[in-house]
Design a protein around this nucleic acid. Structure first.
Lengths: 95, 95
DNA sequence: AATATAGTTCAAATGTTTTTGAACTATGTA
DNA sequence: TACATAGTTCAAAAACATTTGAACTATATT
């Protein structure tokens, strides 16, 4: 922490997470679907390797933009709209 | 253009621009001030070199988050709230 | 004219993010 | 048991972003 608040760090994580075309596509995809999907299915749709997928899902999760839960071998992902709402939709209130 | 739309490219520029603590501070600063300020003044407040300032202002401008105009030697900067509104406040409509 | 101030540009150095493949864990299926 | 499938982790490579100082342009002040 150099001089930023906790709030800014979470905020930066959200913006970094959204500042990538693959991750923005994932968010788009989850938004239009509106039900849970596995990492593998998303990876196929995005045409990315499973390693790369794993990396991007981690970033999205650490930003709080998705939530996940494991069912047997598979990891299911869903959009957490409240984070988008907090940092984007209510950006001015947050500043 | 690999598979993204023009809209996505502009959107990515906005998120990249906001995904940096210095630039987010600049936006914050401009927002609370609500009048034009010179690059130099902002640079002093942020404790950054003029070269670094020049770099960050370029990124913010290319994202459409600030507008600038030169008066003699000085470059004045002001916040373009409509870009924030388009990409953040109305994020869901934009997707 | 000489000097100072505001900002830009450039290339090099440094730092951070993303991709890759190989090796791994855990679960499912024959 | 053997093999397949879903996902993770690791370290190296590649790509990209940021900072730095020096040299520059343009305007202002003495």
């Amino acid at each position: 922490m150099t001089q930023q608040t906790q709030t800014t760090e979470a905020e930066i994580k959200v913006f970094k997470a959204l500042a990538d075309p693959i991750r923005l596509e994932i968010i788009r995809y989850l938004n239009q679907l509106d039900h849970e999907v596995s990492c593998g299915e998303i990876g196929q749709v995005m045409h990315i390797s499973k390693t790369s997928g794993s990396y991007h899902f981690k970033i999205l999760q650490e930003a709080g933009l998705i939530t996940t839960h494991k069912v047997a071998r598979e990891k299911y992902v869903s959009l957490d709209r409240s984070t988008v709402d907090q940092y984007l939709t209510h950006f001015w209130q947050n500043l």
